[in-house]
Amino acid sequence: MLTEMIQNIPQVLIDGLTLGAVYAVIAIGYTMVYGILELINFAHGEIFMTGAFIGTAMLIVLTGIGWVSSVPTIIMLIVVLLFTAILTGLLGMGIERVAYRPLRNMPRLIPLITAIGVSFLLQDIVRFIAELKKGNYIVTGPSLFNSQLSIKASSISSIFTDATIKQSFVIVLIAAVLMMIGLDFFVNRTKWGMAMRAVAQDRDTAALMTINVNKVISITFFVGSALGGATGVLFAVQYGTIDPYIGFILGLKAFTAAVLGGIGNIRGAMFGGLLLGLLEMFASANLTLLSHGVFGAEYKDVFAFIILILVLLFKPEGLFGKPVTEKV
């Protein structure tokens, strides 16, 4: 049993890293908004999903135009990523303006409820448009970067089996890592990033220091949503088929990742995402083996939820967060 598990490790690592990179970038969106507003932006998963649909639609349209085929695919992807990021960023800003800002001083329950409402609304609007255009809300994008690469893990040590990866995996991973590095630079090195950290620490004092709090919150939503939307495109490229309901469960798992890393902590969210992706892939590959067939891979969602619940119960501040005491 153990040898079988070790044999699988290269493949598990590769799949886990891909999934983990997706989780990590979405988790950043949750963690940024929570750090600033102490609000769980339920709609963030749906922004990711909308990004996936916008990106797929653009790719379908672009691959349909004749002269574009002479442009390298990678450039096309970059253009699509940028456009999607801007569109979903604006969408996130709009959502904040309409649904969250008027409720900033209400009890915490109320914005949470609008967040659920926004997420349902987005799901249905996307479903509606997809169904109107394609006749079916499950959409398959054009297949890009499909060539297989093989990693000869068995040449490193004979206990591993070879792992195969799609070319798109490399692109997803590189893009996700670039986004994370870019964000880290933005938050820690730029003026706006400093303003964001200031607002997250103390909104009132930041306002006194001539920081335009509303603008900073808008920018936070823009950046978080842009990253989420771009990840959606990467997800669509990597996994091919998308439907309007992917955002919910993925968003929930990304949220788990954010909690795991300590909510409000951006680097923690990145780490939590990668860790959760690896754990989940490990579970879905080995759960059947470990439990002698009692639990199948269909319990992998349960697995993620159980991690969430355990973290919240025993270490609610996460791996890298600081514990906070509630003030009266």
């Binding site: 659920i116 409402g117 926004v118 349902f120 609304l121 249905d124 609007i125």
Partner: peptide, 11 residues
């Protein structure tokens, strides 16, 4: 349109 209606009502 259930989801849309629910979402709108909630918001």
């Amino acid at each position: 349109m259930q989801r849309m209606i629910f979402g709108l009502l909630l918001i």
